[in-house]
Amino acid sequence: MRVPGVETWALPTSPTTAPAGGAPEASPLVGEVADPAPVLRLPGPVPARGRGVFGYVEQPGPVLGRSGVLRRFRVAVEVGSGEQVPAFAATVQAALAGPGSWVDGGGLRLQRVGPGVRADFTVYLATAATAGRMCAAGGVDIRVGGRPYTSCRTSGKVILNLDRWRTSVPHFVAAGVPLDTYRLYVVNHEVGHQLGYRHEGCPGAGRPAPVMQQQTLFFDGCRPNPWPYLNGRRYTGPRR
């Protein structure tokens, strides 16, 4: 299915979204204002369908990773989704840069490219209706309860569902997991499929979930985790 781009966008000089995690912050001093509670899901209605056309990022990004094969990607957002291309691209960049991303193994490099440069795959943010059509065209059914629910990967396309991008999933929300963490997970999970990885299961109750576990559907006793590498080592579970 051909999905033409109708806009190109230049990114700001620095990402607007950073990976979740890191060292815990100290408690605020007397008189200081505490950090706001993390955003678990965005309020308001989510557009169910868009125009079926996409705006693309024009500005290339730096090469991510130290060594290995270089795979190039583009980033696109559906027109009518209500999401801004630069903000989405910054989150994708943060997810793929890590630390903890797919490039940490030393055998892979990734780079976002602009128009006119051959790309190995494109990361799309699409409304549920468009995501459902694009995934179905690639042989993937993302419906749950008859409605497009999950995201998917088809040949050369990483397709992220706008519903999940804005509202996460109920078990992430119930567990108090920030929306930013879910977003990092879904980028790395679907890009993992593009890189040839298949689904994995929870390796044990209370342990981090592998990034290739279908965390959008269940934790299965594991704890949420958005990264393929933990403590510098590839983290996996039993194959599904």
Rank of each mutant, 00 (worst) to 15 (best):
G52A: 12
R109M: 07
H193F: 09
R240I: 07
S27Q: 15
D35W: 05
T16Y: 02
L184P: 08
R112W: 08
R207V: 04
M1K: 04
M134W: 15
N231Q: 15
E83S: 14
P170D: 00
Q215W: 00
P208I: 10
T167M: 05
G138E: 14
S101E: 10
P47D: 12
A128L: 05
P19W: 06
G138D: 01
V177F: 00
L42S: 08
G44Q: 07
G132V: 07
F219L: 12
P36D: 10
Y197T: 02
G139Q: 13
G52D: 03
G192E: 04
G156Y: 02
T150M: 08
A34H: 08
W227I: 03
T91I: 00
L230N: 14
F88E: 14
R223T: 05
Q93C: 00
P115D: 06
D120K: 07
L179S: 13
V30S: 07
T236V: 11
A95K: 08
A131G: 12
V113Q: 10
E190V: 05
L184N: 03
D220F: 00
P38M: 00
R239Y: 10
L96T: 05
Q93W: 01
R239V: 12
S155I: 07
A10F: 08
A129C: 11
T236R: 14
F219R: 07
V63Y: 02
M212V: 03
L195D: 14
V186W: 01
D104I: 11
W165D: 05
A34L: 11
T17K: 10
Q213W: 04
L125N: 13
R143I: 08
A129P: 10
V173Y: 04
R109C: 11
V140M: 11
R2K: 11
A205W: 03
V92Y: 01
V92P: 03
G156Q: 07
A89M: 06
E190I: 12
A129D: 15
E7D: 11
P12S: 02
T8N: 12
S101I: 01
V63F: 06
D220M: 03
R51M: 09
F218H: 15
G31K: 10
P36H: 03
V57S: 05
K157T: 14
L125I: 02
G55P: 15
T150I: 07
A89K: 03
P238G: 15
R66W: 06
L230D: 13
T122E: 02
G232E: 02
T8M: 00
C152S: 14
L96S: 06
V123D: 11
D220P: 08
L160N: 03
V6A: 12
Q111G: 14
V169A: 04
Q213E: 08
I159T: 12
Q213R: 09
A76Q: 14
G232C: 09
H189Q: 09
R66M: 00
A76H: 09
R183H: 08
S101W: 12
V79E: 13
G80Q: 13
D35P: 04
Y229I: 05
L162V: 10
V144L: 07
